[in-house]
Amino acid sequence: MNIFRLAGDMSHLLSVILLLLKIRTTKSCAGISLKTQELYVVVFLARYLNLFTRYYSFYNTVMKLVFIATSVCIVWYMRFHKVVKQTYNKDLDTFRHYVVIPPCFLLALLVHHEFTVMEVLWTFSLYLEAVAILPQLILLQRTRNIDNLTGNYIFLLGAYRALYLLNWIYRFFMEKAQARWISWISGLVQTALYADFFYYYIKSWKNNEKLKLPA
């Protein structure tokens, strides 16, 4: 495992820990999109089915279980915790997330490496993950006061994607890995969606100002 991959995974892990910490300590999920979190549950369940079919490493297995468990846990808090659920910005989180699921699945049926259940589900999870951040970015744009934890959460999530791109470049050249266009392109699209956010995040950080996105 190379340094980019490890840093990417740690960034992803940290983002989830940060989000759970925000929810548990402040008893608030203000600014967080339930739609995005629900899409992540679908992404992880579809992708990590290979948990049962193939063993890669202890690290791999533990991380998969952590990502499934934490994503379900976050959705549970936002939907059912009697205090937390009242802080959810339901009226602002209006992206109809279920409409992106069928097109992603259809695309996976059409464009994949191998026509097997596992491979199509794996591919579906890549396509869905690429767009899963959209409801969150839209909610963020509508939020007047973005708290630091929410901003940092999204930054870490974006950093994870950017580091994975570097990881693929590294693997392609150093490990002579074969081209994996499906992963690369969906990963590239996913990372590109964060570009605008990154721009304002870094700008606010440099100017020591509170993060604010233009309406």
């Binding site: 995974d9 490493s57 890995a177 074969q178």
Partner: peptide
């Protein structure tokens, strides 16, 4: 590296 490249990723 075999066809499962990148499948060890998360």
């Amino acid at each position: 590296i075999n066809a499962d490249t990148l499948k060890d990723e998360l």
